[in-house]
Amino acid sequence: MSHVIPYIAAIQEAIREEMERDDRVLYFGQNMATSPEDPFLKQFGPDRVRVTPISETAEIGIATGAAVAGYRPVVELYMAEFLLVATDQVVNEGTRFHFMSKGQVSVPMVMVAGYGFTAGWAGQHTGSIYGMFMGVPGLKVALPSTPADAKGLMTTAIRDDNPVLFFQNYLLLLDEGEVPDGEHAVPFGVADVKRAGSDLTLVATGYAVRTALGAAESLARRGVSVEVIDPRTIAPLDVDTILSSVARTGHLVLVDQATRHSSVAAVIAAEVAELGFSSLEAPISLVTALDSSIAYSKPVEEFVLPDEHKVVKAVEESLGLAPASA
């Protein structure tokens, strides 16, 4: 059985259920739980649910400290760029402790960060910055594209004994989808085939999954069968599912909202080039954002971002198809 809820509600549902299941789960951040009517504050009380000032270094550092001391904090950061203020705490503190202490310390914490608000939020609030964090040893990175995955990955994130960066997409917040009833945990490091196909493999991350599915749908109307794979977590990254798909299709197009050199797409391209070279019948193609900041004005914003049209074009080129409009 399942129920239909928006992406954001699915995330909140996972946090609430994990807080009910485990008293050690804490939930805090800016501009939350400020009124006695706040549902989390009402249900779990001020020991476990708190508002913080605008102090990202302290917020993430406090989560780290509470985790070392035995709790399982979830820190809500709203926009991903805000955690850049506290980059040391994100990449160079809690991520190192388990290793440096020879396993004496573990840091089970979740940092929740929204990214990619490409709806006029302009230069400083629109980045798809997840790729910056995928090579940090000790840090896991989740990037859900559907309500079901959002819930399942949040559940797993809270239960994980490591720091997890949970990236939610701002454009998807109100997207509705089926979420399984009851406990729902999606394992880390297991990609999901969002659409099966045989002619070409499209791998997309986060918001770009929607773009890829749209392109696959329009290509299907032309008789082109595209497989769409969503890695769901980018650290750990499930390369095997991608390799076995490419082994069947021989063609790989990667779609990512990030700029090319800080995209997950670039890393996947490298993995497939090394491990799946013999399967490839055409060069790997990357459809990413152009190397620029995101403008406020809509036509400029759209120009630099990947879209269905750009994906379709890359697929046509990979398969040697004539353009649809011709």
Binding site: V85, A122, G123, Y296
Partner: peptide, 26 residues
């Protein structure tokens, strides 16, 4: 700013307005 900045990112350097940040306190 040619529509690149928008409401949060106004600049008028000629009048001594060097800009600001959308990231609090930065």
């Amino acid at each position: 700013c040619g529509g690149l900045g928008g409401s949060m990112h106004l600049y008028d350097v000629a009048r001594g307005f060097l800009g600001g940040s959308g990231i609090v306190a930065q």
